[in-house]
Design a protein around this nucleic acid. Structure first.
Lengths: 192, 192, 192, 192
DNA sequence: ACTTAAGCGAGACGGTACGTCTCGTCTTAAC
DNA sequence: GTTAAGACGAGACGTACCGTCTCGCTTAAGT
């Protein structure tokens, strides 16, 4: 998890304050971006003391990951029987998340601070990327078993094609309209 | 261009100092990463005054782009007669550049600071991305004319597949060994 | 007052630090003079951060006035019954203060920065000059009432003679030995 | 003198430039005061290069003294036969000079930078103060000889009374109306 | 007319100090 | 023991001037 665990004794932490800080973090991320986000500004907007923020989150990265957890959640690829259907869901999950402005800001922060803030990268990978990627790999393996994909299909490569293309379109090119992107990728990957 | 233009009049700028600053920038980028790169540290390592750096580059981004220009240069896709050959060159250009640690650091900085430092993004796009992408698009169009690609091929989409996949592998997954990646992408794009 | 008022809440200011800054200010004033006094040097000698100085004093002038308050204090002219005695006290107060090297440095700074730092001038006038001048004027008025001074004596003029002469001797000519000066001024002012 | 001597060979100095720099110095002194006067600003306003200023004057003080020489000139006390007349002239010289805003700014700069810029103080004393003070002392001595002043009159003291009082009024109190001041001082000094 | 030496403008240079911002830690009183 | 408040040491920011330096160009006087 991202937050620092509270003690069981003494005055309990205020839940209102908690949510206020997270909300302040989200709005400031949207307004200023990750590099210009300061703890000072978060505390000021949340109406709390700076110390309170530091007491609960060890780093800016941890705070941001918790504040945007719902925006980042990609989910898990279901097993609905059809390779094309399952991959279609997977792609819609990706495009939806990558098109979310807050999610895009955070993902860029994660990769831009790979060395600076390795905790953030690790958490992001294990909490968000790994579950989706594992279930998407399973969906592709089922496709191989069904013959929708050739027996020697390089599954990690295909996942990189899928994620990389969506990332390129939605985050780097910042194209909001992703109509047809999902179908085009499906055609490319499942062709043959 | 990135640097502040020198005047023709007055004492000329020291070329030694110029190169010392760029070299200091490169080494600090590798050691600390872009967000932690400070002008103070650059000047100190270069053995110059802080003011000298400010005199020549308006922003940290401009300095970094000039310091890493050779690392970022992707080049232009040649027209050698064969679609597969031309695209193969294009892919080797991409993987070579994206695997360069300095180039990766700077590209991440560019996209992470899209809003913060729009000058940096604009320069990177126009100097590096645009020329390559234009020539790569031409190569794909020649492929369509030759029948190596279907007549209705979505060329911008294919470029996003190519760039996105390489970016995902080389930069985000930071996989140094990219053996076979070029061939796999070629097979994927030209398959039919 | 001169310092920025501290808040009642939060961590209280360190008194040790406060005194260290004032002492550093005094010693640097004596060594370098007012124009060459820098906040950087004060903080360095006091062993604190530069920000701590800025947090407590808005301007160099405010810091210097507080650091030298005891040296600047002229006091108030007493009412002891005799015009000559009272004025003698007044003169000894003036010569004592004006002969203090630190006080002289600060007074010159005040008048040299009348336009630059009007706050400093205003504070100096209201805190130091005004109380003394008012009480000295009262002493002269008592002298008029007693017949030690002519009924039409121009009291502001006489005060300017007294202050101006002492200032000229002690500060501008920087004569340390002021023996006989007090008596000479008394003879001049009370002659008749 | 104050300026750096030019060489006899090579291109002669421009007289126009010289006067432009002095005029710029005067106007900036009036606008900003001595402490805030910068060589950069002088050169900019004079339309010359900074180097040109540095080539001609070694210090800011030397430049300022030359620029304001006419404003500072007090003159010499004449020998017109009457003690009261001569001293009256002396006082009018003083009040005229001390009431000149430019002269006041420079005199304050001189005494505020006694330690910082001893050259300025020395020059001011020898060029301006000494000649006047010597001739004023001679006038007082003639007064003693004539019996207008007691035989044991302390002439340096009386000069300090005169100068100090005028300085106090005109410079420190910055009273523009000095009507009657001359007569009052004359009465005080010559009384008896 | 040709040389030559200095003046001149322009601006680079290494510095120092400015006053501000943000960091993450700390110290207090209030609850 | 959490909280609000704010002090603290630290360090980077970007700017303003300092006084020196290095250029190419201009301007006379001496040849």
């Amino acid at each position: 998890m991202t937050a620092i665990e509270p003690s069981r004794r003494g005055r309990p932490r205020s839940q209102r304050t908690h949510e206020a800080i997270l909300e302040a973090t989200r709005s400031l991320l949207l307004e200023k971006g990750y590099p210009a986000l300061t703890i000072d500004a978060v505390a000021a907007r949340a109406g709390t003391a700076r110390t309170t923020v530091y007491r609960r989150w060890a780093t800016k990265g941890a705070l941001v990951l918790e504040a945007t957890a719902e925006h980042l959640a990609i989910g898990i690829v279901p097993d609905a029987g059809s390779t094309r259907t399952d991959l279609g869901v997977a792609l819609r999950q990706l495009t939806a998340t990558f098109s979310d402005r807050l999610a895009a800001i955070v993902m860029l922060a994660v990769i831009a601070n790979l060395d600076e803030d390795p905790f953030m990268a690790r958490t992001f990978r294990s909490e968000i990327v790994y579950p989706w990627r594992t279930s998407a790999a399973a969906a592709l393996e089922r496709g191989v078993a069904r013959g929708d994909l050739p027996p020697d299909a390089d599954i990690p490569f295909l996942l990189d094609v899928i994620v990389g293309t969506v990332f390129q379109r939605a985050v780097i090119n910042a194209q909001s309209e992703t109509d047809g992107l999902d179908e085009a990728i499906l055609d490319l990957v499942l062709a043959r």
